[in-house]
């Protein structure tokens, strides 16, 4: 029951608290691209790949009391934090999930900013294109982000590292 919900709870039990909706969206997308079997459907949106299904699922988990959403008013922006509740952890224990170990990838993603993860996720969204066209496409669809050559280089490096982690199958074709 609620297997796809349980997969999200399992993600939080691995990474702890996630700050920012964009970061959460991109982390799940990147892990999915690495072969972690999250089922949420993604489409290209304002900040790159975005899943309405994931957004609704997170809300459902909050409504069920399995996850906690905290809204913090900062001086010029609002920040959302998400973590697992005790009820969520209990529900997770009763779920029979068969997921690969993706802790190393998740930790790698957690250590990066949402802006950078947006870049990595967007590059992965265009992974069917030849490599030299990926950067051009990203610049075309995200002209206002002004991504630098250094950021692209770092993103390629991270994608390479994600592929070489043993626990998952590497980047999946779309």
């Amino acid at each position: 029951m609620l297997n796809n919900h349980a997969k999200i709870l399992a993600f939080f039990s691995q990474v702890g608290e996630v700050t920012g909706r964009k970061k959460l969206q991109k982390m799940i997308y990147i892990l999915q691209a690495c072969g972690v079997p999250f089922e949420e459907k993604y489409q290209f949106h304002f900040y790159g790949p975005y899943s309405e299904e994931l957004s609704l699922r997170i809300q459902e988990l909050c409504n069920l009391g399995f996850m906690n959403e905290t809204k913090e008013e900062k001086s010029s922006y609002v920040q959302y934090r998400y973590n697992l509740t005790e009820d969520g952890a209990r529900f997770l224990q009763q779920s029979a999930l068969d997921m690969p170990d993706y802790k190393a990838q998740a930790d790698m993603l957690m250590a990066n900013s949402s802006r950078f993860l947006e870049l990595v996720a967007t590059m992965l969204f265009f992974r069917d294109l030849p490599q030299d066209e990926v950067e051009k496409k990203v610049q075309k669809v995200k002209p206002k982000q002004h991504y630098t050559a250094e950021e692209f280089a770092r993103a390629w490096k991270m994608i390479g590292e994600l592929v070489h982690e043993n626990s998952v199958d590497g980047i999946q074709n779309r």
């Binding site: 964009k22 969206q25 900040y47 975005y50 957004s55 010029s76 922006y77 609002v78």
Partner: peptide, 14 residues
Amino acid sequence: LPYDFYRPGEEGER
């Protein structure tokens, strides 16, 4: 979600 909006500073996708 019938209609989504975001205020300045919020991360909205729609």
